[in-house]
Design a protein around this nucleic acid. Sequence first.
DNA 1: TTTCATACCTCGTACCCCGAGGTATAGTGT
DNA 2: ACACTATACCTCGGGGTACGAGGTATGAAA
Lengths: 112, 112
Amino acid sequence: MSERDPTLMSGIPELVVLRLLAQQEMYGYEIARSLKVLSQDALTLGEGVLYPALHTMEARGLLRSRPKQVDGRTRIYYQVTPRGRKRLERLTASWQRMSEGVDRVLGAPSHE
Amino acid sequence: MSERDPTLMSGIPELVVLRLLAQQEMYGYEIARSLKVLSQDALTLGEGVLYPALHTMEARGLLRSRPKQVDGRTRIYYQVTPRGRKRLERLTASWQRMSEGVDRVLGAPSHE
DNA sequence: TTTCATACCTCGTACCCCGAGGTATAGTGT
DNA sequence: ACACTATACCTCGGGGTACGAGGTATGAAA
């Protein structure tokens, strides 16, 4: 139903997928490839993560989808809804806050 | 037994706890407070996360503990084992790689 | 025809986070 | 004496998510 804010945990897949789709409509397979390239292999969304995530996000009204036939293959294109954009903003803020927090702890002086 | 590498997910509690303890021996309650201060409130480890995490990490040989009586209260001090230090290195590297990946995706141009 | 890339999917598991609640001591305020 | 706060530990149950493995199907290349 309603989205929960990530506390410490991930939500990374949701965040990066929303970010990609905020730029342009894409289909699942394409998202996976783009992510790998953009992140320079640091992030890899397996299909067992990606597809369920897309479905969940659509069910929550963050995405909308439409099928498209290309060369006899079916692609399902997703786009971000206004609600999804709001969610993206919040997740981005959370991520920044959280990752800065971790970096501060990691960067803490070893002594004194 | 063996530790799993975080793929996308968290492991943040484990990472930051190891990092704190790598600097000096600490007890649970102290860790929670330090974390809040160091991260400037961006990170808060609830006790329901912290204590189980400490126990698991000890069971995995990443930490060693010793009880200490202070003012009639029992504190359990934890320190990092050599194995824990290796684990910390790996987690730190993972974290850096991962967070840079996310930042690259987030920072990707909005158009063209 | 076999293999590879494309393109979708689900199931089960494992893992982890988290809130709520529980015990106990020491100190402070009334 | 009584209550409240801070210290200090703990567990349990639930919820959510990530993930690997496996499954279907098409088109192109070997």
